[in-house]
Design a protein around this nucleic acid. Sequence first.
DNA 1: TTGTACGCGTTATCAG
DNA 2: CTGATAACGCGTACAA
Lengths: 347, 347
Amino acid sequence: MSGKVTIYDIAREAGVSTATVTRVVRGDANVRASTREKVQRVIDAYAYTPSASAQHLEGGRTKTLAVVLTTVTNLYFTRIYDAAYWEAEANGYSVRLFQTKDNAPISRELVDTLIRQRVDGVLFVGSIWSTDRRDLNEALEKLRLYMPVAAICPPGVQLNCIRIHSDLVNCSRLPVRHLHALGHRRIAFIGGSMQTKDSSKRGENFLEELRALDLPDDPAYHVDAGYDAEGGERAVLRMLSGLDRRRWPTGIVAFNDTVALGAIKQLKQMGLHLPEDMAIIGCDNQFFCPYTDPPLTSVDLHPEELATSAVRELLVAREGTAISIMRESTLIVRESCGAALSYRKLD
Amino acid sequence: MSGKVTIYDIAREAGVSTATVTRVVRGDANVRASTREKVQRVIDAYAYTPSASAQHLEGGRTKTLAVVLTTVTNLYFTRIYDAAYWEAEANGYSVRLFQTKDNAPISRELVDTLIRQRVDGVLFVGSIWSTDRRDLNEALEKLRLYMPVAAICPPGVQLNCIRIHSDLVNCSRLPVRHLHALGHRRIAFIGGSMQTKDSSKRGENFLEELRALDLPDDPAYHVDAGYDAEGGERAVLRMLSGLDRRRWPTGIVAFNDTVALGAIKQLKQMGLHLPEDMAIIGCDNQFFCPYTDPPLTSVDLHPEELATSAVRELLVAREGTAISIMRESTLIVRESCGAALSYRKLD
DNA sequence: TTGTACGCGTTATCAG
DNA sequence: CTGATAACGCGTACAA
């Protein structure tokens, strides 16, 4: 009763064979009622639960998926994991979460662990595409020997795996159009790091959108801001202090809500009133958006749906790398651009 | 090269026994250099990695810990998980994260999964103590048959496992003293739900502190607010609209920063200026505290250290349930109470 | 230095 | 309806 209880213990104690114990546990029909009852009693008494490892060894499947991301401390990743978790759960799978050191790519060690654990599929999410492509594809090749691989990545990335991407186009388009519709003509983008695929793609789309609307695409309106609030502060300070006041933008699109948070603080610190003196839009529609001052207009990428789709694809695991285009981004209008709440979605 | 590669495949292909393959993989010294090289080449060619399940079956340990919490979407839990993850990692363990449905207790199903996976230890964190005590202890008893169990829980809870608790006393004391020192006499607490152990403990400590300072402990100053921003909004509205203006508190202690976020919004909406008309203090020192307007003074419970300690205890797994009192809470002073930044820590 | 053979806990097959 | 027994992939005595 103290150490590990095995099927042998139960079989011996119940006076039956291990085969019968298995039948009882699995609810097999071919067991006499009295036998079943007898065995069940012993099982309960000993709190017996079969070992997943042994089951795996025999059966093949681990019924486990892996999610790999940089840190669960990031709210965006958190929403992805949460959705993936429950989708997997609903299908009888459990999820193992792996975090990668800051900007480290997919390490050999991680690949090794993934394979060693014999998970039935991996989902990579974000911040990994900045990596040396050769390393990455090498890792994927090795992984693919053992399990299906999926990635939530920007459209441009060419990876040999199931790719799910968010709607980066509308993610840039919606905010720009919104500001344009409200009369803004000088619009700036403070976003990520131009080093990474994801960020630069967002930047390109932003510029494209400006041109489509015949707006000035002054490079001064386009500055790196990293991914956190502090980055937002710095970016605003750098951009505005480098610009003659008459050339200041009147609207800012931030890489994400956290960056916007920092930007707002810095703008206020410089004496600007929001949204009168400056409009601002974030991205991700985080929980705190309604609580900034003014409430932050934001784009929702619906990361939960990306995660859900990714898990589904992984479970189906049809060969041939599928490319799913996801549900469109949605603009959530609040008051940080001064829009009336009766605002209707543009075209 | 397509399906699963086993140690037999490697052995056959390299023309040696499985024992020799193991030796090479594990870096055993007693292998002739030429043999080692030959085997290693085959291993690399086939991308062979031993199966964790098989290793577990043979060896006993899974080298895996489980962390159970309600949702990783909560920033506080997120910090705990992150810390636990890296501490485990540093010790060669991996972590499995389990989420429980909203307010559901530890389900039979979860206990079952935990045992089936044969994890080497579990850490339960938060929001589980509101549960029926009988169920809970029953689950723990069963789990303890297979693995050491730890819980990050409030001091009052009597669970038969390793208990790590945060400094709930100072968590209430520090804010009250801070406000008192700044001249506040009518201080309110908007916090959690008095149904749960954790919340009520915080409430008790709060009242105790008021009495210790000879401040009024008017029940009207003590209202449930749940755990999110919306709860904070509602709590403020309810409290203030039910009170004659002359009896309004001048300072509010919020259950956590998110609740404070909502409270701030509601206070502003009622036309109050912060911190002049109302001081407010949060708890958890979340990333957004410096970015509220005004920047939010908060208490840091150092959840990372709780998690780290919990993991350490779990790995040592000394029998007999240890009770660790953790590092004291710290008050992080910002501007939401109007304190000068030169503020010194009270006694 | 290397190989043989068994055990780890479970399920599946096949015989009774 | 029930019981032997092989097989799953690996590590480890023990033997050579």
